[in-house]
Simulated scan of single mutants.
Amino acid sequence: MNDDTGRGFPVPDGADNSTVSETAAGAILTIDLGAIRENYRRLKARLAGVRCAGVLKADGYGLGAAQVASALIREGCDIFFVALLSEGIALRKALGPGHDIFVLNGLPPGSESEALAAGLHPVINSIAQLGAWREAARAAGRKLPAAVQVDSGMSRLGMPPADVEALGTDAFDGIDIRFVMSHLACADEPRNPANEQQWLAFERLRKALPAAPASLANSSGIFLGPLYHYDLARPGAALYGINPTPGETNPMLPVVRLQAKVAQTRSVEEGAGIGYGHTYHSRGPLRLATISLGYADGWHRRAASAAWFEGVRLPFVGRVSMDSIILDISALPAGRLGEGDLVELIGQSQSLDDAAAHAGTIGYEILTSLGARFHRRYIGA
C-alpha cells in the first residue's frame, strides 16, 4: 500500500515490525490501524473543529509509534507527543520532516543540540528547562518552537504556579510558544471537583504567560465537554481502544487482538497438582492445554483470567509462568484443540479493559507491557 500523504511510514496490511516470524512466535498480536484511524475520527467529531494531536509515548502505547503515526497522518494529524527525547528521535527518523513532535518530559540537561538536530520541540516544564532552551535559541540565532506546561494541580510535570507568576517579561525571548498546556489528573471521573479546580487554575496561569494557543484535554478530557477543549486536544489511550469513559459503554473501537499458541495438551487425574507451588489441584479428571505466553510477555502473574477458543471460555489453572499458562480445556470436545492452535486472550471475547480488570490494573499498563516476542501483524492500514 502506498502512503497516500507522500509522507510517513507506509504499512501494508499484514506487515509487521518485529523480527519474530509468525511460525516461530509463541503468540500473535494483531493491531488494527483502521480502528485507530476510526477512533481518531470519533474524537475529532467530538472536538468540533478543535485540532487533535496524537500521543505516541511508550512506542505508541506499545503498538508501534511509527505505524500508529502513519495511520494518524492519513487522517490529517500533524502534531505528535512523545514522552522522551529518545522516542522523539526515533519517531523523527521514521517519519522524516513535516510533522511537529513535542517531547512531554522536556529535554534532559545538555541534550538541546540533539533535539535541534532532530527537529523536535520541547515541552518546557521548569525554569531550568526554559533557560536552557532560551540559550539554545540564542546560540542558533533564531526563535525555537516549544510548548510550555504549567502545573494546574496534578503535581507531576509543569511549572509550579509560583514560578509562572515570577517569570519576567524577557523569560521567553527567542522562544516561539506554540502551546500553553497542562494535564488533567481526574478527567476519567467527570464528577470529580478536581477537574473544575484544574480548569480554573489553568485559566489563571495561562493569563500570566504570553498569549498562545492552549491545550488541556487528554482522552477523557475530550468527553468533559467544550470548556476543556481549548485549541488542541492530546488523546492517547482512547486512540488505542482504552475506554475514556469508565463505567459507561466504550465509545472507541477495539484495536488489539492477542492470541497464543497451544504448546502441549494433556489429561490429568483427580488430585493432580498444577503449576508452580501446586496452588491448584484438580477436583476430577481434567484436560489441560499449555499456551506459549507468560509474564515475560507482559501477561501479569496476578492476572487470573481465561482464554477463549471458538467462543468457549478456557479458565487459567495454577500460576502464570514466565513463558506459559495452563488452561482447563475440559469444556471442549476431546481432540478439538491441539498443538499450534490459537486461543484468544484479548479480542472479541475479552476486551483490553476486561483483561486489565482481571489483573487489578488498567489498560494502559497491559498495552505498554506487551512484550517483544510476539509476531506483530498490522491490519487495516
Score class of each variant (00 low, 15 high):
Asp297Arg: 02
Gly225Phe: 07
Leu286Ile: 03
Gly298Trp: 11
Pro251Trp: 02
Leu286Asn: 07
Pro97Gln: 12
Thr245Cys: 14
Ala355Cys: 13
Ala296Thr: 05
Ala136Ile: 10
Asn218Arg: 07
Ala381Cys: 14
Glu114Leu: 15
Val180Phe: 01
Phe80Leu: 08
Glu114Lys: 15
Pro193Met: 09
Tyr295Leu: 05
His183Lys: 05
Gly318Val: 08
Glu248Tyr: 06
Cys77Tyr: 10
Ser18Asp: 11
Arg142Val: 09
Ile291His: 03
Gly371Gln: 08
Arg178Ala: 15
Leu72Ile: 08
Ala137Arg: 05
Gly371Asn: 08
Tyr378Ile: 02
Tyr228Lys: 03
Gly294Met: 03
Glu135Thr: 11
Ala187Trp: 01
Tyr228Asp: 04
Tyr228Pro: 04
Gly298Gln: 11
Leu56His: 03
Leu91Pro: 11
Cys77Ser: 14
Gly311Lys: 09
Ala48His: 11
Gly311Glu: 11
Ser182Thr: 08
Gly298Phe: 12
Arg51Ser: 13
Ser324Leu: 06
Gly96Trp: 03
Arg51Phe: 01
Ser86Lys: 15
Gly54Glu: 08
Val343Phe: 09
Ala359Ser: 01
Ala69Asp: 02
Gly241Asn: 02
Asp188Phe: 06
Met154Val: 10
Glu339Trp: 03
Asp341Tyr: 03
Gly34Phe: 10
Gln129Asn: 04
Phe309Lys: 01
Pro315Asn: 01
Cys186Val: 10
Phe80Ile: 06
Ala146Leu: 09
Gly347Tyr: 14
Arg302Cys: 12
Arg142Glu: 12
Ile274Met: 03
Tyr228Asn: 04
Ala69Gly: 05
Ser215Arg: 08
Val82Asn: 06
Arg92Ala: 15
Gly225Cys: 06
Ile326Phe: 00
Gly168Arg: 08
Ala132Glu: 13
Arg336Asn: 02
Ala217Val: 02
Ala359Cys: 01
Pro315Ile: 01
Lys143Glu: 12
Tyr295Glu: 12
Thr23Ala: 14
Arg301Phe: 15
Lys44Gly: 06
Leu84Ala: 15
Ala201Cys: 12
Ser70Gln: 05
Phe223Met: 05
Ala185Ile: 10
Thr30His: 04
Gly236Gln: 05
Arg92Gly: 14
Gly318Trp: 09
Ala65Phe: 02
Glu165Asn: 12
Leu167Ser: 09
Leu209Asn: 05
Ala217Ile: 01
Thr290Asn: 15
Leu345Gln: 04
Leu327Ile: 10
Val150Gln: 03
Glu196Ala: 15
Leu130Trp: 04
Leu144Pro: 03
Arg42Glu: 00
Gly271Asn: 06
Arg373His: 13
Ala25Cys: 05
Val317Cys: 09
Ala372Leu: 13
Glu365Gly: 00
Ala194Lys: 14
Ala128Tyr: 11
Arg138Tyr: 07
Gly338His: 12
Ala272Ile: 07
Ala208Ile: 04
Gly76Thr: 08
Gly76Cys: 11
Ala233Glu: 00
Arg257Cys: 15
His183Glu: 06
Val317Ser: 02
Arg376His: 10
Asp16Tyr: 07
Gly110Leu: 14
Phe223Lys: 02
Gln149Tyr: 05
Ser267Asn: 11
Glu112Arg: 05
Ser220Ile: 03
Arg46Cys: 00
Glu114Val: 13
Leu85Met: 09
Ile175Gln: 05
Phe80Thr: 06
Ala139Met: 13
Ser18Pro: 03
Tyr230Trp: 13
Thr361Asn: 02
Arg377Met: 07
Ser321Asn: 13
Arg376Cys: 10
Gly241Val: 01
Val320Cys: 14
